[in-house]
Amino acid sequence: MAGEFLWIEGIPFPTTTIKDLKSLRDEFVVRDDDVVIFSYPKSGTNWILEIVHLIHTKGDPSWVQTVLKWERSPWIESITGLELIETQKDPRFYSSHLPIDFFPKSFFKSKAKGIYIMRDPRDIIVSGYHFWKALKISRIPDSFEEYFEWFLQGNVPYGSWFDHVCGWLQMKGKENFLIISYEELHQDLRAGVEKVCQFLGTKLSPEELNSVLKNVSFQAMKDNKMSNYSLLPDTYMDHSKGCLMRKGITGDWKNHLTAAQTEAFDKVYREKVAGLPQGSFPWE
């Protein structure tokens, strides 16, 4: 299973992806009560998932401490994830790394709530390299230098970050769609959680909010086997080569990218996001 991508419409996906994404796009029915987390891989997906799950339980950590994260919010583009979603009771929670053009069309006509989390792509490169080299469900790079080139070319799982984020940013301003960044959660977690609460229409007491904040800290999630992916089967991940919860910081790219790589990244970045309004990203 290792060493391969599943190529669909010119985009590389992990081998666990449903091969017939067209049927998923055209036939899956999104319900109005659904809560969907969207992201490009390694953007803070698991952090926002934990926040949403704990807001749902009003700070009670029993759900996040007893049920595996990929069962609480299954991946819609995976075979096993889709099966789990179909059996969920309302409100359903699920996740997706799919580019906007691949996601079920019914979402865009529904009242379902969608949250898109984004992150500085330079940090995504670093985090992605360390994560994907441990997974057995996609092609593994031989070096950081090779992965860096793959990333700029869009030859990494789920394709180009630039296309992904520019696609989903088209949803900005929609009443049922929230865009939040890894960086703003880092800067002021309480304000970030309150922002998500408001979007979901959930009011928390001070005690409930404090419980959410306590249980979504990096250390709490790293220690929670239901959330840290340490229980992901060995058929999918070589745990000796990497982990999900590595550092949980911003700006780590400065410790990894060379001056030449930074210059090469900046050139591609300027070209790819030129059409977006200035200030679209907090890391600029």
Rank of each mutant, 00 (worst) to 15 (best):
K203S: 11
T45H: 07
F93H: 12
N255G: 01
L231Y: 04
D32R: 06
T16L: 15
S230L: 08
K109Q: 14
F131T: 03
W63I: 14
S240K: 14
W75I: 11
I137R: 03
E175V: 11
G167A: 14
I18N: 08
F108I: 06
V216F: 08
V64N: 01
E83I: 00
V30R: 01
Q65I: 06
T202Y: 04
K89H: 11
S96M: 06
D26M: 04
V156S: 08
T87I: 10
V64I: 15
K58E: 05
D26Y: 00
T80E: 10
D188S: 09
N224S: 11
K109E: 12
W168A: 10
T202A: 03
V126W: 05
N155S: 12
R246M: 09
D142R: 12
V52Q: 04
G167C: 13
T16M: 15
W70A: 04
G3F: 09
D34S: 14
A274S: 15
E86F: 00
F144M: 05
K89G: 11
A220Q: 03
L209E: 00
K267R: 13
D34V: 09
L213N: 05
W132I: 11
A191W: 06
W132S: 04
V30F: 02
S160W: 09
F28R: 04
L244F: 15
F5H: 13
F162P: 01
F265E: 01
A220H: 03
N228K: 02
A264S: 15
T45Y: 11
K203R: 11
I55T: 02
E27R: 07
G44L: 12
P277S: 10
T262I: 03
Y40A: 07
E71A: 13
Y116Q: 02
D123C: 02
K222G: 00
I124C: 14
R122Q: 10
E27Q: 09
S143Q: 08
I125P: 01
T80C: 00
K22G: 03
A112E: 01
F93W: 08
D90Q: 07
L276G: 08
E183C: 08
G248F: 13
G159C: 09
K254I: 14
L231E: 11
I124P: 00
P74T: 06
K105R: 15
R72N: 11
S23I: 02
H239Y: 02
S240I: 06
P91L: 08
Y147C: 02
G59H: 02
K69C: 05
R72M: 09
A2M: 08
F28M: 06
P277R: 11
Y94V: 03
S95K: 15
D32S: 08
S205D: 06
H130Q: 11
L82T: 00
I51R: 00
W70C: 07
S230I: 12
Q170D: 13
T80N: 04
E9C: 10
E149M: 13
R122F: 06
V196C: 07
L84N: 01
V64W: 05
V30D: 01
D26S: 05
F144T: 05
S62Q: 13
W7S: 00
H186T: 07
M171E: 15
